[in-house]
Structure formats: structure tokens, C-alpha cells
Amino acid sequence: MSEHKDNQQNSKDMNDRYVTLVDDQGNEELYQVLFTFDSEDYGKSYVLLYPASAKEDEEVEIQAFSFKPDENGDVAEGDLYPIEDDDEWNMVEEVLNTFINDDGTDY
């Protein structure tokens, strides 16, 4: 996983399945939501994203953030928050690895 990009913004599109990340230079990139999950241990919701422009067999960097869900529990027009705690990162990576192993898909 990579470091987060500063000044994250998201745009509502196709049932909130896409998020636009804006880096500190103002460059925008569209990401697709891989999945979201909640952690009781940290009391947060998390979203994992991958570049929307990625080809099916292309290796990509997964971006992960915590977020405040909307009333439907989705990533909406709200803010994404960087994951800065090492233990929290480890938990997110474990969830991602479980997802990849269960799904059989390489991201």
C-alpha cells in the first residue's frame, strides 16, 4: 500500500463507487472503490481504492483511508482520512490480504 495523497476529495458517481483523489500538486485521479469495511477495534469505517484506469491484469497500488459513512453506510461526499497508525495499517493490510485470498483476484 502506498502513502495517502493530501487534500482528498471524492465525487458522487455511479452509486459512490468512484472517488477522485487530489494530490498536493492539484493533480486529480479517479479511483474505483474496491471495498469498504468497518472495524470495531478502531471504531472506524475504511475504504480501499484502486486506479479506475487500471487494466484487469495490471498490478496496482491500493490506496486505503478511513472515512465517515453517509446515512446509507457508503463513501459519499464526506472526507477521507489518512491511516497514520502502524497497528491500524497492519489491520487494514490483513483485511486486504483476506479479501484477495478469498476473491482470488490480484490487485
Rank of each mutant, 00 (worst) to 15 (best):
S2T: 15
N7P: 02
Q8V: 07
M14L: 14
N15V: 07
T20L: 11
D23P: 04
D23H: 07
D24C: 08
G26Q: 10
N27F: 07
E28C: 12
E29I: 13
E29C: 13
L30I: 08
L30S: 13
L34H: 01
E40Q: 14
Y42G: 04
Y42K: 05
K44Q: 05
V47Q: 02
Y50C: 02
A52D: 09
S53P: 07
S53A: 15
A54P: 04
E56S: 10
E58D: 12
E58V: 03
E59F: 08
E59C: 03
E61C: 06
E61W: 08
I62D: 00
Q63T: 03
A64W: 01
F65W: 08
S66W: 03
F67K: 09
F67S: 10
F67P: 05
D70M: 04
D70A: 09
N72L: 14
N72I: 04
D74K: 14
D74T: 07
E77R: 04
G78T: 03
Y81N: 09
Y81I: 06
P82E: 12
I83M: 02
I83Y: 00
I83F: 00
E84W: 13
D85S: 09
D86A: 11
E88A: 07
N90Y: 13
V92W: 00
E93L: 11
E94I: 13
N97E: 15
N97A: 14
T98D: 07
F99L: 03
I100V: 15
I100N: 04
N101G: 06
N101E: 15
N101A: 14
G104S: 05
T105C: 13
